[in-house]
């Protein structure tokens, strides 16, 4: 079996299976936990849990003015690569076709050259985040192997995707196979590392906001 066939078939099947197994395991495991009771009496005007959670998720989209200056680069750069990843993953025609083949749903895509340009910016932004992590003493201190692995499995699909589209560094079918294999690595790592924040950030921010709001604290 050729590498491309292997990556598009058995490797992808295994990766999606691990992704689903791990993600459902963690999500259901968290969602079915006993709710922690808040003993404090609810303050007057306490919003409904849903409204409190939503306001908490939104409020944390931008840092508090106290931390704005020190975290401005991380926040802005974070937005750049998160939006870049969303565009590259969701609005590239071959990716839309892949989703359609898997789930039967599709949506319009952007021109390939536009997505390629966005992907290059995304890769640059991801590299900048790594440099920042390595050069900032505090970030370096709190970084663990999980952070670096999560960065690598995010960066590599972007890099190999650019290489495949731009035909850099090898034959297209080989680059495409390597690209798919890096996506497989991303899917396999996703549930077990910090990439799971893609789902968990809503739960953690929402839960925190519900508890804080009940006590009358600002989020």
């Amino acid at each position: 079996m050729e590498l491309l066939q292997f990556s598009r078939g058995p490797a992808l099947t295994f990766a999606i299976a691990v992704f689903l197994l791990g993600t459902l395991w963690r999500l259901i495991g968290i969602l079915m936990l006993e709710r922690r009771r808040v003993d404090a009496e609810a303050r007057p005007g306490t919003p409904t849990p849903l409204a409190a959670a939503a306001s908490g998720v939104l409020a944390k989209m931008w840092p508090h003015k106290t931390f704005l200056k020190s975290s401005l680069f991380s926040v802005l750069n974070g937005y750049v690569f998160h939006i870049g990843l969303a565009i590259s993953v969701l609005l590239f025609a071959p990716h839309v076709l892949f989703v359609k083949s898997l789930l039967g749903i599709s949506w319009p895509a952007l021109p390939s050259n536009v997505v390629l340009a966005v992907a290059v910016i995304t890769a640059g932004s991801l590299l900048a985040s790594l440099v920042h992590r390595l050069t900032n003493p505090v970030q370096r201190l709190i970084s663990r192997i999980d952070d670096y692995v999560s960065w690598a499995v995010t960066f590599l699909p972007v890099l190999t995707g650019i290489a495949a589209v731009a035909h850099i560094g090898g034959r297209y079918e080989t680059l495409l196979a390597v690209h798919i294999l890096t996506v497989c690595a991303f899917l396999i790592w996703f549930p077990f590392g910090k990439l799971m924040h893609a789902f968990l950030f809503v739960l953690s921010r929402g839960t925190t906001a519900i508890r804080f709001k009940q006590r009358g604290a600002e989020v």
């Binding site: 066939q5 598009r8 078939g9 992808l12 099947t13 999606i16 299976a17 691990v18 689903l20 197994l21 791990g22 993600t23 459902l24 395991w25 963690r26 999500l27 259901i28 495991g29 079915m32 025609a93 071959p94 990716h95 076709l97 892949f98 359609k100 083949s101 898997l102």
Partner: peptide, 22 residues
Amino acid sequence: AAHAGVSAPLIGAAAVAGAAAG
């Protein structure tokens, strides 16, 4: 760009196993 024979039963089984484990 389409997948080449991703096994739906295997993925379904993985999802059920994940939900059960959770």
